[in-house]
């Protein structure tokens, strides 16, 4: 269902290639939309697949775009890495029109991408995938000791937190002083 192609800008996306449709094609022609991430690679996704994302579904529900208009106006998600968006699009396509089974085998496996994936899924409001991702995060510390949890979840110690807080206060103080000086300069 999805296809990608390196695009140069969100305003003029290159023609994406389309994967073959499934055998049971719907009678009513399906509408497609286009999304791209930080890497500008445009993904063609069916409206059915995009329904998983409450954010995108909300955006497209009242647009009534024609195929041409949709192609010309891909949704830009500049805060999401291209490979992460690819994972999300793949998942949405795999689960188009059906609920996620409790033990979903078609889920992204790349642990190193989990942090970015969680943030992206949370941003795109894909509830089922978010639940799965959060479960993955929670499972990371199953049966671990506090010290191991600290490492796995990169939790700063109290001393590190205090130092960071002091640093932040210092920085805020400096910025405030800078602003005051600038304001005084402007007044002169």
């Amino acid at each position: 269902m999805s296809s990608t192609e390196q695009g140069t800008s969100s305003a003029a996306p290159a023609e994406p290639t389309t994967a073959p449709e499934s055998a049971a094609a719907p009678e009513v022609p399906e509408s497609f939309y286009y999304v791209h991430g930080k890497d500008k690679v445009v993904h063609k996704v069916s409206a059915g697949a995009l329904q998983h994302s409450a954010l995108i579904h909300g955006m497209i529900s009242n647009l009534g775009y024609t195929e041409e208009q949709a192609k010309a106006n891909p949704f830009p998600f500049e805060n999401i890495d291209g490979d992460i968006l690819q994972m999300v699009v793949d998942w949405c396509n795999q689960h188009k029109g059906k609920p996620t089974p409790p033990e979903d085998t078609n889920l992204p496996k790349q642990k190193e991408k989990l942090f970015d994936l969680v943030l992206a899924v949370n941003y795109l409001e894909i509830k089922e995938l978010l639940t799965y991702c959060c479960k993955q995060v929670a499972m990371m510390v199953k049966g671990k000791s506090p010290e191991e949890i600290r490492e796995i979840w990169m939790i700063p110690t109290d001393a590190e937190d205090e130092a960071a807080e002091k640093e932040a206060k210092k920085r805020a103080g400096k910025e405030a002083a800078g602003e005051t000086a600038a304001a005084a300069g402007d007044a002169k």
């Binding site: 506090p146 949890i149 600290r150 979840w153």
Partner: peptide, 11 residues
């Protein structure tokens, strides 16, 4: 897990 997490830091 939450108990162990609570032992990681005050935060």
């Amino acid at each position: 897990e939450l108990y162990k997490l609570s032992k990681c830091s005050k935060r």
